[in-house]
Structures are given as structure tokens and as C-alpha cells.
Nucleic acid binder design. Structure first.
Lengths: 209, 209
DNA sequence: ACAAAGAATGAACAGTGATTCACTACTTGT
DNA sequence: ACAAGTAGTGAATCACTGTTCATTCTTTGT
């Protein structure tokens, strides 16, 4: 007998796999899942199309993995932003702002993760993470209700409103993204974030900022 | 010579065209534009696929027309709901409620009109109507600011938040639509509408309902 | 009844893009 | 060096759909 899988090989394969993942995410960040062609991904990764299928069962499986990795990052960021000190409203304000800023920095990424129609396997992943988001915001809203800084309400529905208002306002009109000022900060974007976060906090608390 | 287009023929053609439009909207209402196949539409309409192309330049053109007709109906409804008597907040409350209820009654329709990714010609139509919606809500918000019942704010952005919060909350989670109780009114739906409209009004006015 | 013109048909075509698989190239232990 | 096993290749295949167009069917005026 001969050829046993060695450590060196395992590593090389892992690197190849990671490379495919990275290139795929690049494509998705540019035009969403739907327009990410296997041939293009393979081209960017510098491998043959068939090679993709040695690392992933199918396009859908590849996408599901990409989705899982990317969304977990986002959920972690929101969780982190929610864990600062302060009362519930301050923490929510912080998290919403972080959410909005990140979505605005990569609108196509955000759209792909939040709203783009995707295949069943990917949609399944999305449901998992939708719940993760909902749980985070919900818990904070509940905290706020307990603290008395947020009026009593259906926390689950309210958290959906939050995500909805933000994602649609920032990501929905992808057309305004035409005005791409690649370098540095944009004043309009700051105002946008401010307005939206303000709207959300008022919608939650029923008080002027 | 012989055969001149007669009134009877004109009418028959118009009826055929209308029939195609109706069947197409049926398909769209069921699965969105993307999944509305020409073959399926033709089948439902009881004509050959080629016949579709005697009435419309292309699939895209057919969809653009469907979109125009359907959205105009919705815009008219919102305008109507905004024209009741009362102060700006009351009128907005009425319009948002109507908007939400209609979206909830036909979630797939609403999604297709508001958020589904569509071909360029249809997207062009969508931009027109996005402006129509924005103008309606914006004007009402401006009225409210003038009347003093809504605090000063960027009316355009605020109107985007309104549409975003509603459409995402109602239409975004198309999965929860699993619980389809075909007959009569649903209590959950009423609560959903109530929560969302309340959230929006508070987001706008900064006061508890 | 007939000819002219339009309407309807639907099988064939064409573009797209995921997936396969026979083959080549490489890695490994003896 | 060799055999056994794995990774990589990419042209061919397959599936899916919008669109075309040669042909057939209807309508109309004489």
C-alpha cells in the first residue's frame, strides 16, 4: 500500500478550501449570492470548476457555509455592542448604531445576509441567525422593560421592527449607493445612521431623544 | 383586399390581453416575479406560449405592465387613506394601518412589489412608485411638522423608515406565514399590525400612543 | 366561395450555468 | 522506481427557460 493522508496534505487542502471560501465571499459581497457564478469563483481562486466540488457538495452547500461564517461574525458584533455598560436604552442605541454602520459599510453584504432571496439550505441558515438576532435585541428590550426605561410591549415584534427599519432604510434603496465616495467618511451617511437610530429608539421608548 | 381590424376583434384581443395580465398577476401573487414562468402563465391563460409574445414584447415588458397596474392600486389606496379628515398623525396612523393590513393580506404580492429583486425595466417602475409612496408619506409628515404634532425631522428619511419597518416586519419573515388560517380574521395578525403601527407612530412623534 | 391579412400555435432553438467524470498529475510508503 | 491512492482538471453534459418562426387556423370583404 501507499499514500496515507499526511498532515502537510491536510493543511494544503484546508488552505485551498479557505481560499475558495474567501473568494466566494468576495463575489457575494460584490453582487449577492445569486450572481456569484461557480466559474467566476473558480477563476478568482485559481482552480478548475471541478475542484470546487472536491471541497463542497454543491453550490448551495458552499453558500450555506459562507452564510454561516459571515452571519456569525455579525451576530457576534451585535452581541459585543450590546454588552457595554449602561442602561438598556444606551446599550440598544450602541448596538443599533453598530448594526447600521456595518450594514452601510457593506450594503451588498448586508443585503445578501438579510434580504436576498436564497436557496432553501441557505434560507435555513438565515432562520437560525434571524433567531439569534431576535434573541439579542429581545433580551435587551426585556431588560429595558424591567429597568423601566422602555414601556411594556411585545419584545419579539419590536425587535423585528428594529431590524426591519434599519435594513430597509439602509439596504433597501441600494440605488442611493451610486454616490460612492470611496475615501473616508460621508456626512450623509452619518445623518442617515443618526436619523434611523433615533427613529428606532423613539419607536421603542416613546420619548424624544 | 379583405380583413380589416373590426371592433369585435379589437375587443377580443383586449380581453385576451387582460386575461394574460390577470393570470400573470395570479402567478406573481403566488411566488413572485422570478418564479412566474411564461409556460405556466400561458398554461393558466389557456393559450400557447407564442401568443404571449403577440401581446407583449417580452417577459420583462409583461412584468413591467403588471407591476405598474398593481402598484398604482396600492398607491391609490394609501393616498385615499391619507385623505381622511383629522390631524397629520391620525391620517398617517390610518394610512400605515391600511398599508400594513393590505401587505399582510397578500404577503407575496407585497414582497414582489416592494422588495423582490427584479429586472431593470421593472426596477425602473419600482423607482417611480417608491417616489410616489415617499412623496405621500413625506407630505403628511411635513404637514404634521407644520401642525406641530410631529417634531421637526428629515421627512424623507423618516418616510423610508416607515415603509422599511412595515414591509420588513410583515413581509420579511415570509416563513412565519406558514400558520395560514385561510378563513376569517386572525388575532395574531391584528396584534402584529397594532404593534408595528404603534412603533412607527412613536418613532415619528416621539410620544407614547 | 375565395383570397387576403392577421392571430394563434408549439416545436425547435439558444443562452446560461451548475454539475459530472474520464483523465492527468501529484503524493506517499515500500 | 514503482504501485496505490488522492487531488485537480475542464470539456462535455444536463436542465432549465425565454424567445422565435414556419405553419395552421380565423376573420373579413367581395
Amino acid at each position: 500500500m501507499a499514500y496515507r493522508e499526511t498532515e502537510k496534505m491536510r493543511e494544503r487542502k484546508a488552505r485551498a478550501r479557505q481560499n475558495i471560501i474567501d473568494r466566494t465571499w468576495e463575489c457575494v459581497a460584490q453582487g449577492g449570492f445569486r450572481s456569484a457564478r461557480i466559474t467566476r469563483i473558480a477563476g478568482l481562486a485559481g482552480v478548475a470548476t471541478g475542484t470546487i466540488y472536491r471541497h463542497f457538495e454543491s453550490r448551495e452547500d458552499l453558500f450555506a457555509e459562507i452564510f454561516r461564517l459571515a452571519t456569525q461574525r455579525e451576530v457576534d458584533k451585535v452581541a459585543e455592542a450590546l454588552s457595554v455598560s449602561g442602561n438598556a436604552v444606551e446599550r440598544l442605541d450602541n448596538a443599533l448604531r453598530k448594526f447600521a454602520q456595518r450594514a452601510l459599510k457593506g450594503p451588498m453584504k448586508a443585503w445578501a445576509l438579510i434580504a436576498e432571496p436564497v436557496d432553501p439550505k441557505v434560507e435555513e441558515e438565515r432562520l437560525v441567525y434571524r433567531k439569534a438576532y431576535a434573541s439579542l435585541f429581545e433580551q435587551a428590550i426585556r431588560d429595558g422593560i424591567a429597568e423601566g426605561c422602555i414601556p411594556d410591549q411585545n419584545a419579539r415584534l419590536a425587535s423585528t421592527c428594529l431590524v426591519g427599519a434599519i435594513s430597509e432604510s439602509l439596504v433597501g434603496p441600494l440605488s442611493p449607493t451610486q454616490t460612492d465616495s470611496p475615501q473616508g467618511h460621508d456626512n450623509n451617511e452619518d445623518e442617515l445612521v443618526e436619523t434611523i437610530v433615533c427613529f428606532c429608539i423613539r419607536g421603542l421608548t416613546g420619548t424624544r431623544s
